[in-house]
């Protein structure tokens, strides 16, 4: 456990799967009141149930982050329930199949950018508006080692994560004197359920592992610990930063 989040109100987009779920569990275990937001209401309910079963506090919000009115509704729901929003974690994101640029499709581009860039922008905008009203807060966006490095075949994903870094740093400077800190976390390849389902070939796993000097995949809890650190008061002088949890990948 890193920092204490007793009664802090935490909204996590993409909170029903992968790294978002790991963050939801970690903040709840740290005493936070957690709003789990995701597109699938069934998945959201599952995570809320698991948090409550462990004695944590959570609500579920079904939300498509590419829809501006849905995002406004998401923030409103949290504020209606708990009266404020202390922490926003924007973890909703998708990938498209590995494809070289010459063979990429317009539909894939639009879909990925909508979730990974527009979704982060809309979520951040809604969170910042609320935080301005209440006088402060902290936002952590899910960027990636691919906000710093590139990977052939992942042009859309890389472009989207570079964009998340740019949104994060710009907004951080804009709201630095409004009590709102905005940072991003840059994970390497993490052994999420989605990763384990998508990548099964031992050679590919070995190659992806080898990108990290630690020569292993990260654990979702390791990313959640870094997100919690950024969100906590311990990081009170940290804003506009990209924190890596990548086993050394971006040091290479």
């Amino acid at each position: 456990m890193t920092e204490n989040f007793n009664d802090k109100v935490v909204l996590i987009t993409g909170g029903a799967s992968g790294l978002g779920e790991a963050c939801a569990q970690a903040f709840a275990a740290g005493g936070g009141r957690v709003a789990v937001a995701d597109v699938s209401s069934e998945a959201v309910a599952g995570v809320v149930d698991r948090i409550e079963a462990q004695g944590g506090q959570a609500i579920g919000v079904t939300c498509d982050v590419t829809d501006s009115s849905a995002v406004e509704g998401m923030v409103k729901r949290v504020v209606d329930t708990w009266g404020r929003l202390d922490v926003g974690v924007n973890s909703a994101g998708i990938v498209t199949p590995i494809t070289p640029v010459a063979e990429t499709e317009e539909g894939d581009f639009d879909r990925l950018m909508a979730v990974n860039v527009k979704g982060v922008w809309l979520s951040m905008r809604g969170q910042i508006r609320q935080m301005l009203e209440q006088g402060g807060g902290s936002i952590v966006n899910m960027a990636s080692a691919l906000s710093i490095r590139v990977h052939p075949g992942s042009a859309f994903y890389v472009a989207s994560k570079f964009a998340v870094a740019g949104l994060t740093r710009t907004a951080a400077v804009e709201y630095a004197q409004s009590g709102i800190r905005i940072n991003a976390i840059c994970p390497g390849n993490i052994k999420t359920p989605m990763f384990e389902k998508a990548v099964t070939d031992p050679e590919t796993i070995a190659a992806l592992q080898g990108l990290h000097p630690m020569n292993r995949l990260g654990k979702p809890e390791e990313v959640a610990a870094a997100v919690m650190w950024l969100a906590s008061d311990a990081a009170s002088f940290t804003t506009g930063s990209l924190l890596t949890a990548d086993g050394g990948w971006t040091a290479t």
Partner: peptide, 23 residues
Amino acid sequence: FLASDESSFMTGHQMYVDGGALT
């Protein structure tokens, strides 16, 4: 944080605690 096991997947990282100076 960097000295503790909480940062177990972090190595070779340059962590800025700079109030945003480098932006």
